[in-house]
Structures are given as structure tokens and as C-alpha cells.
Design a protein around this nucleic acid. Sequence first.
DNA 1: GTCCCTTTGTGAACCGGTGCACAAAGTGAT
DNA 2: ATCACTTTGTGCACCGGTTCACAAAGGGAC
Lengths: 235, 235
Amino acid sequence: MIRRLSQARERGIPEATVARLPLYLRALNGMSERGLATVSSEDLAVAAGVNSAKLRKDLSHLGSYGTRGVGYDVEYLIYQISRELGLTQDWAIAIVGVGNLGRALANYGGFVSRGFRVAALLDADPAVVGDRIAGLNVEHIDELEAVIRRRGVSIVVLATPAAAAQQVADRVIAAGITSILNFAPVVLSVPEGVDIRKVDLSIELQILAFHEQRKTDRMTGGAAMAEEWPEAVDL
Amino acid sequence: MIRRLSQARERGIPEATVARLPLYLRALNGMSERGLATVSSEDLAVAAGVNSAKLRKDLSHLGSYGTRGVGYDVEYLIYQISRELGLTQDWAIAIVGVGNLGRALANYGGFVSRGFRVAALLDADPAVVGDRIAGLNVEHIDELEAVIRRRGVSIVVLATPAAAAQQVADRVIAAGITSILNFAPVVLSVPEGVDIRKVDLSIELQILAFHEQRKTDRMTGGAAMAEEWPEAVDL
DNA sequence: GTCCCTTTGTGAACCGGTGCACAAAGTGAT
DNA sequence: ATCACTTTGTGCACCGGTTCACAAAGGGAC
């Protein structure tokens, strides 16, 4: 039996798997709190809302951490997933843009819970600079590069207006940041090697609207909608 | 019952395409504002941050709305995509949970811009019920079913604490809602036919952390991390 | 040890989506 | 009308990811 390297994982975890690991982690934490010692792939899959075969394959990418006939040790699996995701270290994040959304993010408990720490809040508006939000002083955007350096920020969250996002992105990237979570409704162009993830509230709603429309269309039998322009439309 | 429309679109638009249509729409709106009359698939693809072949295939699912040698008529395409997404009608949405996030969502301009209208805000906390936010009165969660009926709400946004989300979801579904946008960090279980979309802020951060860790690992050459448990870990 | 039961880990088929590359279709010039 | 040029729409090969289904592995009883 030839065991490759230490485990079956030669550092090539599929993107789809990575996206689900936080889900498993959350389910496992709930089980840990309820005192469960072990869990089967079936039970964990149900808790995470996925297919059990998929869960097993996902976990197999991390290594062979289960015991046949028994299941997975909850605490051990929490540790392994946390380590894989990099949550055993402390990540300092900066939030740029302290509007309604920025404030919500700053106060959002879910960040702090697992390895993330809001280390800085920045804004361009002099009216909010100096405000104290979630225990932090809002600093002026001019301080961006200095703050990133000083606080060891490695992930930046953009909650600015759309018009400012690209400009801020350019600056944080120039300052050495390579991971950005973007809430502004724009397509950012960034150099190779920089990871951008995008959360777009209105796009999610539009997707829902599409499906909702189809459902109601089907119920009213109104399959035949106008294909052409309506009579009067202002161009 | 043979349903088939005039064009090549027999009502089977791939999910991946649907998810990109809002992106195209946003890019097209920008072009419309700048006065562009037509746009090539190449230019639109760049603006939306996708491959041009993919864009053409996506649009071909809606119908044959381009002109070879010329491109697409901006206004016409805006209209067609809007109609396909169901944005030519007005969608009343209710936001349940008026914490930091709920407030941010209520004030978020991006919703109103395209077919969506925040028609109700609800919360369980008597301290916030009655508050006026974004021009709306916050109503008590007891009124949920009545408000949904009275205002013609068809999409519900959940911005409640995790513990309350499933319960609220059950109620809105019982009230006839079939489209839910969930911001609470829980896996909701819902009956067949109900569409759930989930936005999870901390999961996005965890995915970024994973990639960030790999980048820094690679730079420091630290490929050999401990596979086993650390010496002292509290179970 | 042997038998039976449970559950993992994975080979292999399948499926949706991507992107290349090109024929078809249109424009404009001459 | 013809030619040169542009750009769409799509056939096809490819790829990552999902799911099925089962052999392999472990536990527990006797």
C-alpha cells in the first residue's frame, strides 16, 4: 500500500470543496456544542444541506480522517477543517466605507467568531472620520496604506460606493493586499494573483425574481408573453 | 401540452446564465447612460468581466437579438434581459429583522433601482417596532402574515439572528411566499418549490482566508505543516 | 478467530458549463 | 454585384464537479 506523501492530499483541493468547508465547520461546531463526539457522513451531510457522497469526497481531499463503521470524530474534524481554511491563525481585516453596510459589517458578530478580527475602519467622508463604531475609531482613507501596514491587515472588505471601489482596490493592492471581499456593485479589474470575492445583494434578488416569475407564469398559464417591444417605450 | 415559443428558447435557460444576466444588465445600463447605441459581444464581455464566447452563448439562450457585423442594440438588449429576469414588473419585498444588517439593506439603493421595492420591515423586538427606517414603519413580527397579504409581498429577505431564521421561514412559506433571500448563517430546510438564496458573509471571508493562507504558505516555503494534533488542545 | 453490521473512501459514469474555432450573416465600399 | 471586413451564433471537445454504487475497513458480539 503506497500512501502518497503524508496523506492523500497533494495540495489540490477543488474550489467547490473549499466553498463548502465553512458549511461543514459550522454544522460541526453546532454538534460540538451539543456534545456529540462522532458523526456519520450522512448526519453531517443533512446538517450541512448536502449529499453525503459529496461530503465524503470533500473530506477525502483533506485526508482520511474518518473511521469506517463509526464516522468522524467531531473535534478532530473541526480542527482539521479549521487548519485547512487557515482559521487557526488570526486574520486582521480592514473595512473601507463606513456607510450603512460598512457599519453592519463592523458590528457583525460572525466575523469575529472564527479567526477574523476587524482591525480598522476607513472612510473618505470627514463627517464620519473620528466616529467610534464597534469599538474602533474610523480613520481617514488617506491613512489607508499606513493603517494596513501598521495593523498587519491582510484582507480588505470594500463597502464603498461603486464609483470609489476600483480606486480603493488599486490602492490596497499597491499596498500589498491580495485578498479582497467586494460589496460594491462593480466589476473590479485586478492583476493576476489577487483574489476577489464579490457579494452582490441586488444580483441575488434578481435571480430570485427570475425564478419567482417563472413560477407565477406557469401557474397562470401565461406562457405566451410578448416577444417584441411594447408599443410605447421611451428609448 | 406542447409549450414552445417562437424562438430557440424553449424556456430552459441554464442557471449559470441566469446568474450572469444581472451582470450584463448592469454593464448595459452603464453604456446606456453614456449614450452608446450598440455594443459588440467583445466589449460587453469585457465590461461584465466574462469571456465573449460565453456572453454570446448566454444571450443566445434568450433569443437571437444581435446583428452580425454590428453587435447588440443596447436599449433593446436591456429590455429583453429585464423582461427575462422579471424586472419589468414591480416586486414588493419584506425585510424581516431590523438589526444592523436589516437597516443597511433597507437603505440600500441598489434594491429600489431595478424593480424592487422594500414594502415592509418587521422585527420581534418591541424596542425597534414603530421606528421609522428608510421611510417605513417597523412592524411587529406578529403582523407578518397580514403584512405579506396586504402589501402583496412576494420575496422575503431574512436578516434575523440565526436562531430565529427557520421559524420565520416556516411562517412566510405557510403564508405563500416561495422566494427567500437568507442572510442568517443557518441551513434552512424548506419544502420543494421554495427557492432559497443564501448570502453568507463569514463564509466568503473563510474562502478568502484559505487562498490567502496558501499564498503565504507558498512564499515562505512552509509546505510542511503539522498534520497531527498540536500538543495541547482543549477538547 | 469468524460473522455480521455499519460506514468510509473512491472508481466510474454522468452532467452542466466553458471556450475554441469557424461557418453564417450582416455592413459598407467600390 | 462583388469583395473585404466585422461580428454573431453554435458545434464540439473538454473539464470540473456530482452522484451512484460498491469494495474495503473497522467495530462488536460470541
